[in-house]
């Protein structure tokens, strides 16, 4: 006869590991050490958000300045 084992979900719900700030700090420290040891990682971390901000900044500025274009065109087509 086999003994049933609890499911992963049941184990997670039964989770007794209490929240520990020390353990969270240990994990944060791990990632900080990794970032500190590799400048390309740090650069990448800054590069992509900066690029996104620039692209969306210019895009929204363009749309703002040309916001009359789309309604004007649609209205023109609608009248036909």
């Amino acid at each position: 006869m086999t003994t049933p084992v609890p499911s992963h979900r049941a184990m997670r719900h039964a989770g007794e590991a209490r929240f520990s700030p020390a353990r969270v700090w240990a994990m944060l420290l791990r990632y900080l050490y990794i970032l500190r040891s590799s400048w390309p990682r740090t650069l990448e971390l800054l590069y992509w958000p900066t690029l996104q901000m620039l692209i969306w900044g210019f895009m929204s500025q363009f749309l703002y300045q040309n916001s009359s274009y789309v309604p004007a065109r649609s209205a023109c087509c609608w009248r036909r």
């Binding site: 520990s20 020390a22 353990r23 700090w25 240990a26 994990m27 420290l29 791990r30 050490y33």
Partner: peptide
Amino acid sequence: LMIYARLYG
């Protein structure tokens, strides 16, 4: 070792 020591308290 420091990280594991912190994890184990």
